[in-house]
């Protein structure tokens, strides 16, 4: 009998890339189910097309272009596909979804060398590409028929989009406790803050991610909104409004915490989160786009190598 000989350690924790990705998929499920309930079949179709295109594209690229063993088994393409679908409006045409998947997988992920090598979050890159290229589709917030009626939905604008129309004071009034359960308008995945937070807590409990990035984004958004709102409530929307509307929760819980495109150390994560929170609030208050979560994350993705260089773990026995 030939026994195995290898350097230590001889045992391994019950953790693998696949298991981590599976946990993220499980964590996304509540929000996905809620979006299905509210947006019905059209959202289900978007999700199906997005996930399927991402997986098939990654498989095809590794097999035919890179000629390397397939990496689809690690489930990361499914995560990208789900996140992309959640970042699109529920009315998005399916061919646009496919283009988004092409940008996410082919451009943002595989050109850099696949999982672990990409600089930008693939799903966000896909979304931003679509937002810039197809603004009409990407800002059509009509609400398709869902399994649960969505009577008081606005058509044509998200809550954030209402700010210039109604003014900050009126817009603030539209946000109440109910918004926690059901956001009005916006990307499919943003609909239920509660479902997203439940998924985030699951990731924390499973120790898949650490809370620092998410918490520092929330804190920065709250602090900046608090200060501006205090100075001029007629001009600037309040804390609750900024936390609960738009993509802050989806972005902070699932997009900014992507391993590959976020800093490794806890303090680096805090810097990263503060940066995202700051940029998103600057775009919201002073930019021409009503929402800037995607841009904020992409911009901070660029800073990650720098942050990683600056922030290290404290080494034992060294000052």
């Amino acid at each position: 009998m030939a026994y195995i000989v290898s350097p230590n350690p001889h045992i391994h924790a019950a953790v693998s890339t696949k298991r981590l990705m599976l946990d993220v998929i499980i964590a996304l499920c509540p929000a996905v189910i809620v979006s299905f309930l509210f947006y019905g079949l059209s959202e289900m179709a978007i999700m199906a097309v997005s996930v399927a295109s991402c997986v098939v594209l990654e498989w095809a690229i590794t097999k035919y272009m890179l000629k390397k063993p397939s990496t689809t088994g690690d489930l990361s393409a499914i995560v990208t596909g789900m996140l992309l679908a959640m970042n699109l409006p529920p009315t998005c045409p399916l061919w646009v979804v496919f283009i988004g998947a092409v940008v996410s997988i082919a451009v943002a992920k595989m050109t850099f060398g696949g999982i672990g090598q990409n600089i930008f979050n693939p799903a966000i890159t896909g979304r931003v590409f679509l937002l810039v290229s197809f603004p009409t589709f990407m800002t059509d917030w009509t609400v398709p028929a869902g399994f649960i009626s969505n009577v008081d939905a606005f058509s044509g604008a998200t809550l954030l989009g209402q700010v210039p129309i109604l003014g900050a004071l009126e817009a603030d009034k539209l946000v109440n406790l109910q918004t926690l359960f059901r956001n009005i308008g916006g990307s499919a995945g943003e609909i239920s803050a509660l479902a997203l937070l439940a998924g985030w807590v699951y990731l924390l409990v499973r120790k898949v991610i650490k809370p620092w990035i998410t918490l520092s984004i929330f804190a920065t958004v709250a602090v900046i909104a608090g200060i501006f709102h205090m100075v001029d409530p007629a001009q600037y929307t309040g804390i609750l409004f900024n936390l609960l509307t738009g993509g802050v929760i989806l972005g902070a819980c699932f997009m900014a915490t992507d391993y590959v495109t976020s800093p490794m150390s806890a303090w680096g994560g805090v810097v990263f989160g503060v940066g995202i929170g700051f940029i998103v609030m600057m775009i919201r208050y002073f930019g021409s786009y009503p929402e800037g979560m995607s841009f904020a994350i992409l911009l901070m993705n660029m800073a990650v190598p720098l942050i990683n260089m600056k922030f290290h773990q404290r080494k034992f026995g060294r000052k």
Binding site: A2, Y3, I4, V5, S6, P7
Partner: peptide
């Protein structure tokens, strides 16, 4: 002949 299986880098 091999007498064991190496399982390292």
């Amino acid at each position: 002949p091999k007498v064991n299986v190496y399982d390292g880098v």
